[in-house]
Structures are given as structure tokens and as C-alpha cells.
Design a protein around this nucleic acid. Sequence first.
DNA 1: CATGAATGAGAGTTCATTCAT
DNA 2: AATGAATGAACTCTCATTCAT
Lengths: 224, 224, 224, 224
Amino acid sequence: MPATPESDRELPNRELPTTPRGLRTRSSLVAAARRVFEDSGYLDSRLIDITHAARCSAGTFYTYFTSKEEILAAVLEQARDDMLHPGTERVDPHDDPVAVIAASNRAYFEAYRRNAKLMALLEQVSNIDPEFRRLRRERADAFVRRNARSIESLQNRGLADAELDPLLASRALSSMISRLAFNHFVVDAAGGNAPGDYEGLLATATRLWVNALQLGRSGVGGPE
Amino acid sequence: MPATPESDRELPNRELPTTPRGLRTRSSLVAAARRVFEDSGYLDSRLIDITHAARCSAGTFYTYFTSKEEILAAVLEQARDDMLHPGTERVDPHDDPVAVIAASNRAYFEAYRRNAKLMALLEQVSNIDPEFRRLRRERADAFVRRNARSIESLQNRGLADAELDPLLASRALSSMISRLAFNHFVVDAAGGNAPGDYEGLLATATRLWVNALQLGRSGVGGPE
Amino acid sequence: MPATPESDRELPNRELPTTPRGLRTRSSLVAAARRVFEDSGYLDSRLIDITHAARCSAGTFYTYFTSKEEILAAVLEQARDDMLHPGTERVDPHDDPVAVIAASNRAYFEAYRRNAKLMALLEQVSNIDPEFRRLRRERADAFVRRNARSIESLQNRGLADAELDPLLASRALSSMISRLAFNHFVVDAAGGNAPGDYEGLLATATRLWVNALQLGRSGVGGPE
Amino acid sequence: MPATPESDRELPNRELPTTPRGLRTRSSLVAAARRVFEDSGYLDSRLIDITHAARCSAGTFYTYFTSKEEILAAVLEQARDDMLHPGTERVDPHDDPVAVIAASNRAYFEAYRRNAKLMALLEQVSNIDPEFRRLRRERADAFVRRNARSIESLQNRGLADAELDPLLASRALSSMISRLAFNHFVVDAAGGNAPGDYEGLLATATRLWVNALQLGRSGVGGPE
DNA sequence: CATGAATGAGAGTTCATTCAT
DNA sequence: AATGAATGAACTCTCATTCAT
């Protein structure tokens, strides 16, 4: 009502709690939020669904988060590493490039499968909230850049179509893979449709990727 | 115009009004809804914003539509033909296949550009409402099937990589194109980022598509 | 969540409703608010107390007012005229000045009595909300200025102590009267104390006022 | 210091702590509360603001006080002596009565200036909480009674208008002074208005007071 | 004596939808 | 066919106070 001076007012906490109890409660809230968001989607989830699931009161939520948005960010944070570094196995860059692509596509698909509901959630909120749109973009860009580097390296070694702009090609192929994964694990799974031919899809995606880069083409770089 | 039978509709739909005045009011509601939805997104649009923009009362809305969902369906209906048949020019299937692909990719991108805000809307609601998820899927499938037929035809004529499953390949390549368009016209445009290299993107997409199908590969490129 | 453009959104209405029904509802809300505020004070009144008393739903409140503050403003508006022009009887400026002062003090006290609960309310909120502090100040100033003019006129006619600054004197004497009224009708009444000697208080106040201005003192009005 | 008997206290009050540490903590809480209340007002101050400012935890508060009300009482207690006995110098009752009045008005104004924010606070809460309304009344009454005794004495000595009821006159004149001080130091100061003519105000108030009592009128001013 | 996480009732507010006119 | 006032369930968020540690 009266204009309150901001000076002494507490700012919303982003810091992690210091006590073990606080840490535990915060964790259980994040875990509960993940469950609830995955089950009901972001929009249909109410804060009290989350606090109920975490077995704490509505007020406790605000000890750790200032809004639904903020806890969602915490939830999405969790899956970040798994999605950004899906394959723990280090691939030798001197392996057969086709095998490398096949392996990394498979790793991506597997990571997507593990986090499918969270990816659906991210897709939902990124179409609602600019903050999460940015988040998704950043994560996608990380992938795109990595793949672009890989394409460039293949080009430099004379193995891939030199005509392609590595970044644009990476954008296109990365989009292809991620959208296929989304359609397979989110859209098809939710739609109650037939499960779909996972191995076939993966094989096709990899073959298309390989073809698209013209890997293993005769005389790559020579007169065509 | 006869009342469309319920069975074909995904959403319950009131019959079209019979009087000229009614038709006019309905039209202005749909037009207003399109504007409002495009400006504010589905969730943030209030029915009252729409009726205001249409210069009618809140109650009048329910003379023509039973819900917010339903008018959204009507709005999305509008752009359907433009998105499903983007190129009015019929391409001769015996034209150069590369040229055909280039032309149809360009036609798709142009249609996306024209309807970018509506596509963003569709993307938003398809991640919220299963009904619209189905709608988007159906539209995507129409594309996928058409492209699959085209791929199959190229394979049958010995022009394309015969190892590829036409449907899966179409799914992958169609996903690639549509996601590129979404990123270019929706994500990048909204993010205030640099406009991006449209022609380069299109060229890259087409080259990847062509490569991926191995069009014009040695051995397949006999005298046609 | 997403930044919504203010452009098309409706602004809170301050305009009076146009239909008779709307007018009726708004009136009953204001009347109810007055009752509730007077009974419970501003802070302890809940919006639903008001809507209950007005026999309408919580949502209806927001058809007419955007906040508790706004309906309070409407309530206080009502009593404005009664407090600012308490005496309907026009006093002849050539009447006996003492009689004029006595009459106007009485009129003020009577108006205060009629609106005591509202004055208590104004006192409460003016110590809480700067907006209402301003409102009270404005109303007080109107009185002060009127009394200052009257004092100046008496000085010009040689009837009042010429040493006094009319505005400062008016501030002091007006404060005296209004605070006496507040104490008598609000503090004493609420405290469950003895009712207090109304006539004596009025007589004393008037005599002090008259003395303070030195009305009828020797030298101004001939020998006393 | 013995525990003060409940009977004399207006609010339930915990006993003072016995240890030096406890005394220190309690003091810092009261000091912090004074700062916070003065800055934000009673309603907008949160207990947590106070405990933060006092560098202790929320729970500690309840070691020393049972409620927000109670610490407010402690804060107001602090300024009591300064407001009730503003002039430490004892004025000789046989001094010139006008000089005595001028001096005591000045002393009151000075004390008000020193405690302006606290007086504003008292004004705020006395319009919210009956307990504090009583507190303010009691303090005002102490003044009124003292001034009444002084008026009566002047009347007995033939120096003041004998027609006036000393108590009622004191109420009126005391109200005048305290309200002027409130308006000057609280309302005007907060409103960002011009600072106002302090000396002029004081002079006018004193002259009005003197006039009102008819001090120094012919016939009463015999050789004293 | 101190901590700070936990509590939970309760408030204001929104808006799709209904319905008397 | 049109109006626009009325509805009311549902939601998020606050903060004085408690209590296990």
C-alpha cells in the first residue's frame, strides 16, 4: 500500500540452504516438482500439488523458491548434464566417422529416452515463457556447436562434403535428430500410437546424416 | 454451405450462422482472435480481449463458439490450406529432382514465413492441449506422407538411395525442414537475434536433403 | 509470465457503469463498504465481507473497483460535501462575528457527529496510505483557507488582532476544532468513556476562538 | 530491577533478561525495531526485518517479546520521558506567564521534532489498535492535566479569563499545539512540501494561546 | 540462549462462462 | 442476435508464530 523502501527488505533467496534439514527439504521439493510437472505438465501443476508431494506446507515452498518458474528452473537444471553429455564413453576421433556418428546419435536418443518427460516439459514451457525459450536455445546451441566442430573436422580431413557450411549443416542435422527424438519419445508415446521402430529410426537417421555429409564418398574433394 | 458433420471435426463446433449479420460477426471474431492470439499467445489472451477487438460483447462470443479452444481451432483452420499446399504451382515430377526439392523447400519456407505467428501459436498449444497436438501431428503427417511418396518414387526410378526406408527418411527430413523454419522464423525472430542467413539456410537444407537421398550419385544417374 | 503487451489490455475502470443494473450494484457495493469499513476499520475489512454485505460475488467487486483502496475512495467521496459545507444556512457576514463563529463551530461539530465513523476511517487510512494522507490534507486545507479568509476579513474590519498571520492562525484554530471533534466523537466515543460535555466543549472552543482573535477587544470595538 | 507487576502494564510483558548477553540482545532488538518501524511504519514492518536489523534469528525475538505489539510498546516506552517532560529546565511559576507559555510550547515543539517519526508511528498505531489508542490518550491526558492546572492557577491569580473551564480549555489548547506539531513535523515533512515557517508557527501558536486565555488583559494585570 | 526451517490460515485477484434483459 | 453484469472456483503468495535442534 504505502511505497515500502526496498532497502531493508529481503531479496528472494537463490542461495542453497545451509543446514542439512534445509538441504533435505529443498531436495524433496525439487524431486516432487519433477514428478508433478512430468505428470501434469507445467501449467496444470499447482504449487500445493508440489508441496503435498514433498510433504511440506505451502509456505515452506517460499523458503526455497520465489515462484513456480524458479523451481522449474531447478528441475531442468538436474537433467542438464545428462542431456548435454549423454555418452560418457569417449569416442576416439580417429575411429570410423560413421561409427562415431552412429554412436553419438544413439547416445542422444538414449538420453532423450531417459529424460523424455522433462524434454516435453521444456518444450512446453519454452513456448510459454521467454526465459525458458532462452534456456532451450542455449542447450540446443551447445549441441549445434559441437556437431559443427565435428563436421568441420571431417571436412578438413577431406571426409565430408566441403561445400556445406558447417554451422548451418549442423543446425539442420541437429534439428533433425532432436525433432525425431521428440516425436518418437514424446509425441508418439503420448499419443497412444504404436511404439514405432526405434532401431529403424536410429539407423535411418544415422544413414541420412552420413549421406548428407557425403561421408565415405568416392574421391571426396576430387572432381565429381 | 452445409453444416459439417460432427464426425469429421476434432472439436465440437457450432454450426455456421445463417444470417449475413451473423456471418459478419463470426468472421470478425475469428479475425480478432487471430490478431490477439498472435500478439499475446493463447494462454495470455482473454476472451474479453478478443470480443473487444471484434467490437462485440462477451456474451456474443458464445453465440458462435463454445469455448476458447474452439475459436482457436477456427483460427488455425484458416491457415491450413496455405501451409498444406504452399506452392500453388504444380511441379512436373519429371523435372530435375534437385530443382523440385529446392522449389518445394522454398515454398515451404515461404509459407512458414507468411504464417510464422500462427505456427508459433500451433506450437504453443500443441504442447498444452492434446487436441491440438493431434492437429499438428495430422498436418505434419500429410507432409511426411507426401514427401515419402516422393522419395519412394525417386527410389523406384533408381535416383535415390534404395537402402532408405521412405517413410522414416521422410519423417527425418521433414522434421529437419520444419524445425529449421520454426527456429528461423519463430525462435530467432522472437529472440531479437540477428535475422540469419535465409538463402544460405535454404541452400544448405536443400543440399543436405539431396545428399541424404544420394540424388545424382554415380551409378544411379544413368540417362533418365 | 511472458511479458504481455499492455496495449490491448483493458485498463481498470474508473468510469461509472452505464446500465441501471450496474449503477445499482455499484451503489450497493459502496454502501456495503461504508458499513463494513465503519464497523471493522479499513484493515480488518475483507473484500468478501463487502461483497457479502452487498449480496454479490467476489468477482463482481472487480467489475467496479480495482482494489480495496479504490472503493474506500468512493466511500469517502460520499461524505465529502457534508463535511466541507456542513452548514447549509448562509450566514450573513455582517452578523455578529461571535455568533457566526459559534454557528460555524456548531455546524462543524454536527457534521463531525454525523460522519464520525467515516472521519475515524479517514484518520486511520491517512496514517497508512499516502494517497489518503493527501486526501485528508486537501480537505483540511479547504477549511483552513476558508477560516483564514474569515480571519483576514475580521482583521481588515478592525475587529480582530492584527498581529496574527491569518493563515497560521487559521491552521492553529482549525486544528484545535477538528482535533476536539475527533477526540470527542471518535476517541471518547470508542473508549467507552463518559460521553463528555458536548455543549460545554462547544462553548469553550468558541470562546477560545473568539478570545484568540481578540474579537470585541477594547480599541477595536469602542469601550467594552 | 524488580519485575514490574502486571497490573500496571498495558501489555503483557516478559521480564527483562538477567544475563548481560540477554540484555544486549534485547536492547538491539528494541533499537532495530525503532529503526524499522520508523522507516516502514508498523504495518509494513515484518518481524524478520527487525531480527535481521538486530542481527539475530527470528526465534530469538520470542525470547524477549511475545508479539509485534509488545516490542512496539517497548519502543514507544523509550520516548515517553522525552515527550512527557520535554523541558528539563524547571520554569519558575512566578515568571512572566507569557514567557512560560512560550517556553513550554517551544519545548514541546522541540521534543516533537526529536521524536517526530515515533509520534507518527504512535499516531498510526493508535488508529489501528485500541491498546495504543489508550496509550496515546493517557499521554495526552497527562499534558492536558498539567496545562489545566496551569490555567487554573492563572485564573486563581486573576490573570486568565475566569469564564473558561480549565480542563476543557486545556484540552482545546493542548490539541491545538499537538496537532500543529504533528502537521508540521509529520504531515508536511512527509509530503515533500515546503518546510514551513517554524518560528512563525510557534509565535502564532503562543500568541493565540495567550490571547485565548486573555492573559495580560486590562484589569487583571495589576502589580504582581 | 539461539537458531532458522516449518507452519497454515487467509487474503486479494483473475477470467472463462452463464444468463437475465 | 446481442448485451454486459454476474458468477465463483481456483490460484498464488505472505508472514506472525512455533518448535525441534
